[in-house]
């Protein structure tokens, strides 16, 4: 912290990189949980590709965080040796898969945000982070195309699929305020590195989401009470179970290797 309590540029950069890594890792783990549950063989493969894309992105973010932090940490430390309150991911990405419509709604809402975030990060002043973001952006553009198509297919499908897709969106909507609620780390990162102004991404996000929902004949839910706290380490009850499964091996057998 500097004298007025705001994060220093170094702290803002590390904090931002870790948050990005946490979002990618937790969502990658969620998608991995869905493996072998795909509705079709082709969708199964698509989902496995997506899960691995996210884990790969997490690895790039964590490797960079380890370098920034020094101290001999590595990617595995961030993934396997931290407890829930140390994770800084958004609540949206830790929400359970539910049925295919729930999973699709979660991916769609998050990736609409994540793509905007990556587009802005790819232009930020930190070259390494900008390069990682540019690479991730290409992957997420395809993920989002896939998720958007399914929102349209299910929304504009049968009466039953429409009803369930709408219910999935309604259920997750309360997590869509948090991505844009910047805290002092986000503000410092924007100020020092020209990073994304998160609150300003909300309007383009709404426009892009609205365009797909209109095609899908779905109704954009009203903004009521919004959940939050993930960036400060306050998570929903779901994260603990996810971490317990993901971290078990490394916790039980310290430094186990293949």
């Amino acid at each position: 912290m500097d004298r007025d309590g705001a994060p220093t540029p170094d702290q803002a950069l590390l904090g931002t990189v870790l948050r990005l890594g946490d979002n990618a890792l937790i969502l990658g783990q969620r998608l991995a949980e869905a493996m072998t549950h795909g509705p079709e063989l082709e969708e199964e493969l698509a989902n496995a590709n997506f899960a691995l894309d996210y884990v790969g992105q997490a690895r790039m973010f964590y490797a960079y965080a380890a370098e920034l932090e020094g101290g001999g940490r590595d990617e595995d430390y961030y993934a396997f040796r931290r407890d829930g309150h140390e994770f800084r991911n958004l609540l949206l990405v830790e929400q359970p898969n539910g049925h295919f419509g729930d999973l699709t709604a979660r991916q769609f809402l998050f990736e609409q945000f994540y793509l905007l975030q990556l587009e802005a990060l790819a232009r930020c002043a930190d070259e390494r982070l900008a390069a990682i973001a540019a690479r991730a952006e290409k992957e997420i553009r395809y993920h989002l195309r896939h998720a958007s198509q399914w929102v349209v297919r299910l929304g504009d499908g049968t009466e039953e699929s429409h009803r369930r897709m709408q219910a999935s969106l309604d259920d997750l909507w309360r997590f869509t305020g948090e991505p844009f609620a910047a805290d002092d780390v986000d503000a410092a990162f924007a100020a020092h590195f020209g990073g994304p102004d998160l609150p300003a991404l909300r309007e383009p996000w709404r426009e892009r989401v609205a365009a797909v929902l209109a095609e899908a004949t779905l109704t954009m839910p009203a903004d009521e009470w919004m959940d939050g706290g993930g960036r400060q380490g306050r998570h929903s009850e779901h994260l603990g179970y996810l971490l317990a499964e993901m971290q078990f091996l490394q916790r039980a057998y310290l430094d186990a290797r293949w």
């Binding site: 082709e42 969708e43 698509a46 590709n49 395809y142 198509q149």
Partner: peptide, 14 residues
């Protein structure tokens, strides 16, 4: 297998 042409292209890619 795919429901339509766009999905077929995506599945082929995946």
């Amino acid at each position: 297998h795919a429901a339509d042409a766009q999905m077929a292209i995506d599945h082929a890619r995946d």
